[in-house]
Design a protein around this nucleic acid. Structure first.
Lengths: 189, 189
DNA sequence: TTAATAAGTTGAACTTGTTCAATTTTTTTT
DNA sequence: AAAAAAAATTGAACAAGTTCAACTTATTAA
């Protein structure tokens, strides 16, 4: 049952019939992404959405000054989406890089649109998922405003211990919005 | 036609029939909120969602240290929601304060739930609205990471000139995540 | 297994932004 | 219109975080 974890994840957001869930699954195809490979690259248009079944990804952007900024890490059970590029079919600002050998379930844009039209529950599912994500982004902004870099670091490794243990310092610092040198100084005190 | 602006706003997100739109409108009640009054207060549970027809609001939180952090300003055409408190019926972290005499359209939670169940297009509408909001929050985080306070300030007044002109420096600084003293120094150079 | 490359550490000088306190200006209340 | 309160400004001392460069330690590739 390669879809059972995926199904449970959906059921945790929305009440859904077995048959609807089964139909949804038919549109999600398994894909392997090996360590250091990119599922999406900045500049390309995003035509898919993905669900992480195994492994871990980093979603980040590189700004004009060449600095990396990590939006989030996607471990098992997380979604990989570039909402902007997917919705508007514009070039993406994001990179999605596998941090280890990973497996994702992928749905193509045309299939997603079909599902939205065919199954209203899919609208509800993604409405709820988007709202949960929104809550998390709002909280993150508030934390960036109210906590120091040191506090943000310890909060991060407490909240995401499993993912954090897989990360290089540089990757964590680009999530926190500080330099890797300063993160190193935070750690050694 | 007090609902025509509201209707146009919805139509800009989703294709919808006149009759569906008319039914939606029946659940949104006009409410006046005068300057300095609060539509929502931190600690109370949010049982409504609102649409700004006239005026302007500030949505902010006060953290443990007593510092204010402004999430966003909601001018004409913006939505006022505490997604977290509304969805989970938990005490809110947010305050929604009218910055001038304002008029909002309000829907109660039970009516919103009825609409979600009754009209699938409402799910789609809020799915799309949530995803647009998500895009904006992601971009804001990236900007906080990649721009200096000065750059963020000029970006803000360029992007929201109308709202910005109504604001006190203290309100802008709490949006940017800096002190009002430092904002004053930025301005006078 | 040894190069080669990437990652992590450390220190000194620097920049950005904060804190606190005093002063002025603007807005609100009486 | 005067008094009171809130907002904005300024400066000096300070703290948080950056930059650059040198060095050490891990990883990866040949």
């Amino acid at each position: 049952m390669p879809y059972s974890f995926f199904k449970n994840s959906i059921r945790s957001s929305v009440q859904i019939s077995d048959s609807d869930l089964a139909e949804i699954c038919t549109f999600f195809k398994a894909k392997t992404v090996n360590k250091s490979e990119f599922l999406l690259e900045q500049g390309k248009t995003c035509k898919f959405e993905g669900f992480v079944q195994e492994g871990c990804f980093r979603v980040f952007t590189i700004d004009k000054k060449g600095n990396e900024s990590t939006l989030y890490f996607a471990g098992k059970g997380w979604w990989l989406m570039d909402v902007d590029s997917f919705m508007n079919q514009t070039p993406s600002d994001l990179n999605m890089e596998a941090l280890e050998d990973s497996k994702v379930l992928i749905i193509q844009k045309k299939d997603k649109e079909y599902l939205y039209n065919q199954l209203p529950i899919v609208e509800k599912l993604f409405r709820i998922m988007s709202q949960k994500a929104l809550i998390a982004w709002q909280k993150r902004l508030i934390q960036n405003h109210s906590l120091t870099a040191k506090e943000r670091y310890f909060h991060f490794i407490e909240k995401y211990p499993t993912i954090a243990s897989k990360l290089k310092g540089k990757q964590i610092s680009s999530y926190l919005g500080i330099t890797h040198e300063f993160l190193s100084k935070i750690k050694n005190k």
